[in-house]
Every structure is written in structure tokens, then in C-alpha cells.
């Protein structure tokens, strides 16, 4: 009697254990291994973080960042991105309003001659906290300042910004975006 019971117990548990093992093997090992192998062969740059490597003057190479991860810029000769980190505050709260006012003041101090209104993406943090992009309006807001700081014509700055601006999907979904790091590398003459 005992034996029959334990035998039926095993036959009940066998499908549980086997299906679990099979699915762990297929979904947890075979599947990611296939995707990783194809990804590494077909899209090596994208699969490894879209790293931008440049050659320095002394001939050595250096990784200056990921095209997809924003960096901190504060100097007037650079295109400056969005504030890093997220506030997690309600947009209607007093704390958030104070934070934005602080940032507005920072921008006005950086470029006192500029009386245009500051595009909102420059004074709000993104969700990731490392947004690599700013809006075309936010880039335009900074063109004159960059041109002045670098002693180059504003047209040339605009030309570089346009080159690193991506559009909406089919002109519909998402928004136009300017990649800050790429623009700055181009301004420095590090990438074409």
C-alpha cells in the first residue's frame, strides 16, 4: 500500500520537475544564449552599450561614453544637457517648483544676455536620470552662447546640432531629440 502511494506520488511530481527543468533550460539558457550569440555577431556595438571610442592626439584610444547615456556638462562652450537624477516629486508640489526655479536661475546666470524663455526639458530631470538627449528648442536656446564661447559662427553650431538630431518615428511617435554627447564631441572635433 505504502509503495503504491509513493509510486503515484513520484508520477505526480515527475511532470512538475521535468517541465520546470526543461523550461528553465530553454527559457533561461538556450534562449538568452541564442540571442546573445546573434546579437554579438550582428550588432556588436549596440549589444555592448553603444560605446563611443575616439583616438587621442597621442594615438591611443579612449572610451568617452555611451551614445545612449547622458553626461554632465556645465561649461559654456558645451551643449548642456538635462539635470541628472530624478526628483520623484509631484510636479505641482512646492518642492518641485522651488527646484525648477533654482535651475532657471542657474541657466540665467550662465547666460545673462539670453532673455528667451528656457525650454522646460532643461529645468526638469528625466525618468532615467541620464537622458542623453535634449529637445531641438533646448539646443537652439544654447546656440548663440556656444558660438560665442568657441568663437565660431552660429550657423556652424546649428549645422552640428542638426547632424545629431533624430526625428520622430514616422513623424508621429515620440519627439525630435538632439544627442548632447555627440554634438559636444563634434564641437571638439573628436568625431565627424
Amino acid at each position: 500500500m505504502e509503495k503504491i502511494k509513493s509510486a503515484s506520488m513520484v508520477s505526480k511530481l515527475r511532470p512538475v520537475l521535468v517541465s520546470f527543468l526543461v523550461l528553465v533550460l530553454i527559457c533561461g539558457v538556450v534562449y538568452p544564449v541564442i540571442v546573445t550569440s546573434i546579437a554579438q555577431m550582428a550588432f556588436p556595438n549596440q549589444a555592448n552599450g553603444s560605446i563611443i571610442t575616439i583616438t587621442q592626439e597621442n594615438g591611443t584610444t579612449i572610451d568617452v561614453g555611451s551614445a545612449l547615456i547622458g553626461q554632465t556638462f556645465t561649461k559654456p562652450q558645451y551643449l548642456i544637457g538635462r539635470p541628472q537624477g530624478t526628483s520623484q516629486l509631484s510636479p505641482v508640489s512646492e518642492d518641485q517648483k522651488a527646484l525648477i526655479q533654482e535651475r532657471v536661475a542657474w541657466w540665467q546666470a550662465l547666460d545673462p544676455e539670453n532673455t528667451a524663455k528656457i525650454p522646460s526639458d532643461l529645468v526638469t530631470a528625466s525618468g532615467s536620470g541620464v537622458d542623453p538627449n535634449i529637445s531641438p528648442e533646448a539646443a537652439e536656446y544654447q546656440v548663440e552662447r556656444i558660438a560665442q564661447a568657441r568663437n565660431m559662427p552660429a550657423v556652424a553650431v546649428r549645422e552640428i546640432i542638426d547632424r545629431y538630431t533624430t526625428g520622430k518615428l514616422l513623424d508621429l511617435w515620440g519627439e525630435d531629440a538632439v544627442n548632447v554627447l555627440k554634438v559636444n564631441l563634434a564641437l571638439d572635433g573628436r568625431i565627424q
Binding site: 530631470a125 537622458d131 528648442e137 533624430t166 515620440g174
Partner: peptide, 24 residues
Amino acid sequence: GAPLISGMLDSGNMEGKEIIHGVG
């Protein structure tokens, strides 16, 4: 629904949002 702040251009509530996704 985002409050207007003086000196800032109103373009929807961008706090916590990525540029490429925007408000929409």
C-alpha cells in the same frame, strides 16, 4: 496640468520623462 513657472517655456509636464518619448 503642469504649473507654469516664470522664465520657463511651457511644453507639458517633462519632469521624469525622456526627450525621445515626450509627453505623448
